[in-house]
Computed example of a mutant assay.
Amino acid sequence: MAQPDKTQPDKTMNAPAPESTRKFDPGRAAEYQTQSRIALAGYDACHELSACMLAATLGAGRAARLLIVGAGGGAQEIVCAGALEPGWRFTAVDPSQPMLDLALARLREHGLLERTDVHLGYVEDLPPDGRFDAATLIGVLHHLPGDAAKRDILDAVAARLKPGAPLILAGNRHAYASQPLLLAAWGERWRMHGASADEVQAKLGKILQGADPPRSEAEVADLLDEAGFDTPNWFFSSLFWGACLARKRH
């Protein structure tokens, strides 16, 4: 049987893109590598530790299939995990073509394209067959407006995981307005990297209007519980960003 051409993503998305997807346009994709590392202090450390947490949970040196939801951009989840564990294979899903194009370029650069099936679309487009040994959902949840959308994606991920499989969930986990000091420090980080006072204010306004994070770590735990995951184990924090591992209940 002929192998699929992994230089191009499978085009499984058939519904109109929501606003949470449309904002990841070519302009945002082009600046993603730089901007993400300013917005999240410890961006690389978060991804490296995520790979380490998965290896510690699954067992080092074992073959595994990983579902990477929201893989567009730098595909950093796959870059880190693929370097650590040569026996892991990946299914990368993202609804933004520009962001997925950037991920494809990085996977090709790191020699990981042959170990990765790439899908343009949503996790719901994949069969709910419980075939994955682990999953990551990094930098996605706070872009989904409302609790219903957050529950839906966590349910969709859970349906594709084996019992006991770990999920790495990372993203902003505080209502921004409830953490004025953290938000101010986030603005200062941009200033540290050369943003003017007006640019800082514009970025603060954009994040307040353009994302809807869970309101607390307790709310994250509740969302995970409703989707069938155990209590999360938090292992990384950077201002209002946090990363945790939770296992799907048997």
Rank of each mutant, 00 (worst) to 15 (best):
H119Y: 15
L239R: 10
G228C: 06
H119P: 01
G111C: 13
L154G: 00
R215F: 02
V220I: 12
R28N: 09
E114S: 14
V157P: 00
P98V: 01
Q33D: 15
R106K: 13
G74Y: 01
A15M: 14
L239K: 07
P95V: 02
A75M: 11
L54Q: 00
V118I: 15
N233S: 15
I153H: 05
D212H: 11
L208S: 15
L167I: 09
S96G: 02
H142T: 03
Q8S: 13
T34H: 13
M99S: 00
A15D: 13
A197E: 09
L58E: 05
H110P: 01
R191S: 11
A197G: 00
I78G: 00
W186M: 06
A149M: 12
M13D: 10
Y122T: 14
V93C: 06
S50T: 07
E19V: 12
L120W: 08
M99Q: 03
V157I: 11
L58V: 07
A64T: 03
R131E: 13
V69D: 02
R22K: 15
G121D: 11
D212C: 09
R249C: 09
P18V: 11
E219Y: 05
A158I: 04
M13C: 12
P4K: 05
I138R: 01
R189F: 05
D94T: 03
A175D: 14
E77D: 14
P26D: 10
T91V: 15
G210Y: 09
P26R: 10
A60F: 11
L182Q: 05
D125K: 07
L204V: 05
P95S: 03
D44Q: 07
K206I: 04
Q179S: 08
K206T: 14
G205T: 13
A103P: 01
L224G: 00
I153A: 07
A17M: 14
D44A: 10
L113F: 02
A71T: 05
S36H: 03
A243D: 02
D25E: 09
R115P: 08
P145S: 08
L67D: 02
F236M: 07
F90W: 05
K206R: 14
L66G: 00
N14M: 11
L224D: 00
R151C: 03
R28S: 07
V200Y: 01
Q8L: 14
L182C: 05
L120M: 07
P26W: 10
G73Y: 04
A83W: 06
R247C: 14
L245E: 09
P128N: 05
G130M: 08
F132A: 03
W241I: 03
M192E: 15
R247V: 08
A170G: 12
P98I: 01
C46R: 04
A185V: 14
R189Y: 05
G82K: 10
G70A: 06
V79G: 00
A184H: 12
P26C: 09
A135H: 02
F24R: 01
C46Q: 08
W241D: 02
P4R: 09
L49C: 03
D125R: 10
D155I: 03
T21E: 13
D155E: 12
D147H: 10
N233Y: 15
R247W: 03
M1E: 09
N14W: 05
G121T: 12
A202S: 13
A202P: 03
A246G: 11
A184V: 01
D125E: 13
